[in-house]
């Protein structure tokens, strides 16, 4: 085995100082992604700082009426938490659309945000991949790219972010609380992940020496009109080809506010508020939904195998909005 140091963090400050002191260090939470990647030598941390004993495993109300999800709360505990189920069912549904019961029991909310892409080439150290080894090239652009991105891509990388949970969090406009050597800060979820640009090896805007302590949900949960649709190559236990988190705030037949976030199409959960705004104050009709879908996907670019995602994403948006409106037939 490639040897590495293993240390346990006593508190958040200690966790941060341990990673700050060792450039090759990584936090380990549930380990469901990091350990897999270490076994195949895609990730080679010099030190694992175990954060599982930190007191970040509770869900609590915030002063502004929202909910704070501790970074170490498991995906299962989050999805089945009474307040989450009641007030943020979109989030519950998105989490439960991911992975399997066993994995969700281990996986943490913080780790979920930082899980790495599922691009085939990223996983195979014998192939060129800019994300894994900057400067080696991107095998996927000219290669097999069925699962990969159609929005926000660059000539260096077309990977997607695979999380389902993050898509719902993007729609709900959650914020990520982080702590670094210089103290605490918050990052809006939509700014947490990055586009690949010419630094595809950097997935997020979290500093190497920063730790996620919590995810804050704002008070508004869209519990009356929401849906999470996940389209994939089998009915369960597969990552999304396209997923849509949709939420509506209705006043009669009129839409007060619409939120849409897409998964499986970009290097980050995809939001396009200016397209969503087309629905505000409008009637909830199929025609209007289709208009938004067109606007939402405008500028998308296929790479061959994944061309179908462009039309699929539009149809999925329409379906998701319809389902959110009707509140039946969840898929």
């Amino acid at each position: 085995m490639r040897s590495f140091n293993y240390t346990r963090a006593e508190d958040v400050g200690n966790a941060v100082s341990q990673v700050a002191a060792d450039k090759g260090a990584k936090f380990i939470a549930g380990g469901t992604n990091l350990l897999d990647l270490m076994k195949i030598q895609v990730m080679r941390p010099s030190r694992l700082v175990d954060i599982t004993r930190l007191a970040l495993d509770t869900i609590e109300e915030t002063d502004d009426g929202g909910l704070r999800l501790g970074a170490l709360v498991t995906n299962s505990d989050t999805a089945y938490h009474e307040q989450v189920e009641k007030r943020y069912p979109l989030l519950s549904h998105a989490i439960l659309a991911g992975a399997t019961a066993q994995l969700r029991n281990m996986a943490t909310d913080g780790g979920n945000l930082l899980q790495r892409t599922r691009c085939y080439y990223f996983y195979d150290t014998d192939t060129p991949c800019n994300k894994r080894e900057p400067g080696t090239g991107c095998s996927a652009i000219q290669g097999y790219n069925r699962d990969l991105a159609i929005l926000g891509t660059s000539e260096h990388c077309i990977a997607t972010h695979p999380s389902d949970m993050a898509v719902a969090l993007a729609a709900l406009e959650a914020t990520v609380r982080v702590t670094g050597p210089n103290g605490e800060r918050t990052i809006p979820l939509s700014e947490f992940h990055r586009l690949p640009g010419n630094t595809p090896h950097i997935d997020s805007n979290l500093g190497d020496d920063e730790i996620i302590t919590a995810i804050d949900l704002p008070a508004k949960g869209f519990a009356d009109h929401y849906t999470y649709i996940k389209l994939r190559d089998r009915a369960s236990y597969a990552f999304a080809l396209v997923s849509v988190a949709a939420a509506l705030d209705m006043e009669g037949d009129t839409i007060k506010e619409a939120r849409i976030a897409l998964g499986g199409v970009a290097h980050k959960p995809w939001r396009k508020p200016e397209a969503e705004a087309l629905l505000n104050g409008r009637q909830a009709t199929r025609e209007n939904f289709r208009k938004v879908a067109e606007a939402y996907i405008e500028g998308a670019k296929g790479y061959g195998d994944n061309d179908f995602k462009i039309e699929l994403a539009k149809r999925a948006i329409v379906r998701a909005l319809e389902q959110a409106l009707e509140m039946e037939e969840k898929s």
């Binding site: 085939y120 080439y121 195979d124 014998d126 290669g143 097999y144």
Partner: peptide
Amino acid sequence: DNNLGRFM
């Protein structure tokens, strides 16, 4: 993958 000659 016919660029790499490898099952991906």
